[in-house]
Design a protein around this nucleic acid. Sequence first.
DNA 1: AACCACGTTCGAAGCGCTTCGATTTGCGGA
DNA 2: TCCGCAAATCGAAGCGCTTCGAACGTGGTT
Lengths: 332, 332
Amino acid sequence: MVTIVDVARHAGVAPSTVSYVLTGNRPVSADTRVRVRESIQLLGYHPHAGARALASSRSNVIGLVLPLREGVQLPVVMRFVTSVVTAARQHDMDVLLVTADQGAAGLRRLANGARVDGCVVMDVGLDDERLPVLRELGRPAVLLGHPAAVKGLTCVDLDFEAAGARCVDHLAELGHRSIGFLGAPSVVYARNTGFAQRTLAGFSSAAMRRGVASTALPAEPRYDSVHAVVGTLLRELPRMTALVVHNEAVLGWVLECLRAEGRRVPDDVAVVAICPDELAERLRLTSVQLPAEALGRRAVELLVTKLNGQQAPPLTLLPPNLSVRTGPQRLS
Amino acid sequence: MVTIVDVARHAGVAPSTVSYVLTGNRPVSADTRVRVRESIQLLGYHPHAGARALASSRSNVIGLVLPLREGVQLPVVMRFVTSVVTAARQHDMDVLLVTADQGAAGLRRLANGARVDGCVVMDVGLDDERLPVLRELGRPAVLLGHPAAVKGLTCVDLDFEAAGARCVDHLAELGHRSIGFLGAPSVVYARNTGFAQRTLAGFSSAAMRRGVASTALPAEPRYDSVHAVVGTLLRELPRMTALVVHNEAVLGWVLECLRAEGRRVPDDVAVVAICPDELAERLRLTSVQLPAEALGRRAVELLVTKLNGQQAPPLTLLPPNLSVRTGPQRLS
DNA sequence: AACCACGTTCGAAGCGCTTCGATTTGCGGA
DNA sequence: TCCGCAAATCGAAGCGCTTCGAACGTGGTT
């Protein structure tokens, strides 16, 4: 194994000088810097990560806590993961995976063992049991999600309220004056805060602001429920020409039901979905997606900020992105 | 921070004794072992991972190289990832993520920097450019995939040949005597070896062995191609009562086309797919899936074997698993 | 000519752990 | 009673790196 001493000898300098070239912790004259770099290259030197971590008490590894709940969209998670890894590499850090089932104990093990410098925690619930642990873990953490109380934390999420509003704005600008909203199952709204409520709130207030007629209803993940809800919407908003759907599980059925009611999509009813991009892509629907790449990148950036001892805002909301799709509609 | 010295003092022993309790590298009397364990618990001691890695030249971390090609099934990848993480934890190891775009350089960095003890590489192509690197990396690696030459490597994959045969066996046992095979795009077969060929080979020889009439055709990922291929199959095998589909991208269209030709599925034509489970689940099709969990687990086990200095077979093929689904058929 | 200040570089002391030879202890046998 | 042996434990030497104070040279200043 090539060590820093080998490099130092080869370049004719002290080991500490090599270290300074590598870390940039002290100025090194351009001359020796070049010489050291050449020796490193030549000998194929790679610093020993463990030794580095021990001496500097920085591992340059961040922990990424994966969700393992049922019902999470695996492709979306995967997109998060890759964006976090990519962003981390740009800060010269690596990513260690932790599954959520390891829970608080797993977090403690990583943090206290100095295995990671900080954590990114995905899919944080409103009153996540890991929140207290994270607060007094002694290591910075960034949460992907929007818990009820963000004080003392650093959270990143999509601005769901803006997302709801964005759909209305888009449709209103196309001339729609009567817009329905088909949302998540009612139990989701019963839990008092959360992305579902925020989306709905954004939708409603945007409709109000624009003077657009609107009705919002929850839909259960069963065909008959969707059928009933679509029927009710069409009755309550007889001139409904657009529908915002925030319930990816039943999106296909919504389209089927509209067609069954004799409405062509998008000619009679324009449908805008809030769902993963690939689903919208497959169904050829205009949509607002969860910007996984941007969220992951931002999370890493915030974590790096905190690792450098700087302050980070407790909550960062990313603006929604609406993708217009006008291709021929598909049912499956 | 609590160190091993603190624990030693608290338990009234030497640091080395604490180390022996922790690693089990030397016998410790039951008496002191208990006392040390209690001190560890009490003080909330977690060994410093870097110090450990430095002293023992073992990081207890394995690198997992993710594929980032277009067209890989993200949910399947995700399933691999979680199974690898879970299996690794059972061996008291953690998992570090590397994206394939970091390529050979990334592998070298991890391996030479002693950041990982070994690697699991996903989605290895037939003549993967990383193969030579892996062979002389100086650290054990296990590949998920089936490259052309496995000599000097350790590879794990589904036994695709058995998978093809399994479909025929299943259908033949149900009494089908005339079975079609709709495969991947022709370019996939043009590349000389690979899972597509192996599946087809297994299908063909099983059909031969069972005296079942069969025809196999490739299908391009376009509706018209699928339409044409289904038509041809029905013409060539007029008594075709079953179809094996090894082309998940066009599975939906296959069903549509069969229906368009007036064949009910599964009453007139039984369809067995080789595809991710969730797709088959959605379409309610009997299928053979890629056993991601089992593959991931096996990969980790093989890697641990090699890390312990033992030999591992160059190629491990896992038997296919056929899930029978008999629910009402769906098109989307 | 002596001195100071600054930009560079050096040397040595650890970081927290494992490991290996050395030391201690307790025990049975001579 | 003493010796020898094995089991249990200790102590010290590193693992490869960072970091800090000190030393070194150079150039400009008095």
